[in-house]
Structure formats: structure tokens, C-alpha cells
Amino acid sequence: MLMCRDLAVIASDYIDGELPVFQKMSVKMHLIMCKDCRTFIGNLRASTELMKTHSSGRADEELIRRIDERVAEALKEGPRDSTNRGP
């Protein structure tokens, strides 16, 4: 039988719908009987949603400025000869 610890191991796969049907069914059965695991899955799902809504990492302004400068320079140079183009 699936124990709480086993469920915690495969919890992300369950949330993402990546479990084989049989395993998915045993998780569902377990969740019907176990309030703690229902809370856990709910909280792990909320944490996952939190990541989705949280900004995908803010860019470092200094880095952005440096890139803008290099791109502007390269654009001024115009299209480069394909023979000396980098990889």
C-alpha cells in the first residue's frame, strides 16, 4: 500500500500529470483517506503556482545596459561577413 512518504516522493509527478494510470489511482485512493497528504499536495501545488506567478527572475539592470550597448554597436557595424562569424 502507498504510504504518506511514498506519496511525498511522487507528489510533483502527480501534480504535473506525469504518473502512470495505476500509480495515479493509488495516489487518489490515498488522498481520499489521508487529510495530511491532501494538505501536503494542496500546499505543494500552491507553491508551484507561486513559482509560476513569481517573476521569472529580474534582469540585472547593469547587465541589460551592457548588452544594449554591445547590440547597438554591432547593429551599426551592419551585417558581418559570414566567413568570420563566430560559432
Binding site: R5, D36, G42, N43, A46, E49, M51
Partner: peptide, 14 residues
């Protein structure tokens, strides 16, 4: 089995 289960429920929406 859980020895220290999660106590609080997180709010649903991120």
C-alpha cells in the same frame, strides 16, 4: 506516515 504533517493550508491562488 506523517510524524510532522503540514499544519496550515496555503491559500489557493499564487
Amino acid at each position: 506516515r506523517w510524524e510532522l504533517p503540514p499544519k496550515l493550508q496555503f491559500h489557493d491562488a499564487g
